[in-house]
Simulated assay, not measured.
Amino acid sequence: MSVSLDLLKSQMNLTGTADDALLAVYIAAAEGWIVGQIGKELATFETIPAEITLATLQLASHWYENREAVLVGIDGNEVPFGVRDLIRSHREWEL
């Protein structure tokens, strides 16, 4: 994982361990989504870029706060504003 559980909990101002397993799933899912978007594994980076770390934190936090696939009565976004912008420069483009 490029993002530790402690870093995500710090991002979200969470204490305690009750949701640690759930948070680990969100980190893994966010990293998987990012890998799918940029077209390369995070292990290929010598050092994980800060933009990818921040995107992972934002996406995992978003999914934790919005746990259901359907929102009723409010506007929702597929991914938080700016996540795609953060990872765009690290995308492998094919011609």
Rank of each mutant, 00 (worst) to 15 (best):
M1V: 03
S2G: 14
D6G: 08
L7E: 06
L8T: 06
K9R: 06
K9V: 02
S10I: 03
S10E: 03
M12L: 12
M12Q: 00
L14I: 02
T15K: 06
T17C: 04
T17A: 03
A18Q: 08
D19E: 12
D20Y: 00
A21H: 08
L22T: 14
L22S: 12
A24N: 10
A24I: 11
Y26P: 04
I27Q: 03
A29M: 11
G32N: 07
W33H: 06
I34R: 04
I34M: 04
I38H: 03
I38A: 09
F45T: 04
F45Y: 10
T47H: 06
T47V: 13
T47C: 05
A50V: 14
A50E: 13
A50G: 01
A50C: 09
T53L: 09
L54D: 00
L54Q: 05
L57D: 00
Q58Y: 12
Q58S: 07
Q58R: 11
L59W: 09
A60W: 03
S61D: 09
S61Y: 01
S61C: 03
H62E: 02
H62L: 10
H62V: 12
W63D: 13
Y64M: 14
N66E: 08
N66A: 10
V70R: 09
L71S: 14
L71R: 10
V72D: 07
V72S: 11
G73F: 01
I74N: 08
E78A: 15
E78H: 09
F81P: 07
F81K: 12
G82C: 03
G82T: 10
G82S: 01
V83Y: 04
V83S: 02
D85R: 13
I87M: 10
I87H: 04
S89K: 15
S89L: 15
S89C: 13
S89T: 15
S89F: 14
S89A: 15
H90S: 08
E92Y: 14
E92M: 14
E92D: 07
L95M: 11
L95K: 09
